[in-house]
Each structure stands twice: as structure tokens, then as C-alpha cells.
Amino acid sequence: MTIATLAGHEFHVNEEGFMTVPAEWDEELGAALAAQIGLEMTDAHWEVIRFLRADFAETGETATLRRVGARSGVPVKQLFALFPQKPAKKMAYVAGLPKPHGCV
């Protein structure tokens, strides 16, 4: 496991770059991670990321796209607009969480 540095933060990551210790995350780091993949965070992005963090705290698992769409109040179509191409993985990455395991 590697300790990565970004924007003055030090945190554990896996070989792909996903954070492995969710507690090391804060919103400032989230914004820096988003910038790494070309995303500029808006209120709409934060609404989704805060849902993912809260849901993970409750369930211990990263929400799938289906779960975010069904429970966060942000429709799936908008999730694709906010986090284009690979929304589930991008959301997890920005939120400092593991990639979702669920199939749907």
C-alpha cells in the first residue's frame, strides 16, 4: 500500500489511486481528487458526494449507481452529467471510498 500526497494531504491509496482509509478524507481533499480527474465541484456534485459518504458510514459499502439514483434524490441521468462516462467509479474516487462491489 502506498501513501500518496496531494494538495498537502497524505493518505493511503491502492494501486489504482482509490483511497483505502475513508477516514483520511475531507471535502478539501475531495475537491483535489475531483480536479485530478478533470471535475470541478459544484453544489450538485457535493450533494451526491455527501450522500455517498453518509451512506457508506451507515452501510459500510459504497453505493452503486442504482442506489445513488434511487436514494439520493439525484436522478441517474444527472449523475451521468455530473460524473461523465463512469459515474459510479468517479463518485467513489472523489468521495474517497472503494469502488462499488454491487452489480446493479
Binding site: I3, T5, E15, G17
Partner: peptide, 8 residues
């Protein structure tokens, strides 16, 4: 073992 953060 500290390195710049890898990007997926």
C-alpha cells in the same frame, strides 16, 4: 513510500 497520488 510516499508518492504523488496515482490517478485512476
Amino acid at each position: 513510500d510516499t508518492a504523488p497520488a496515482p490517478v485512476p
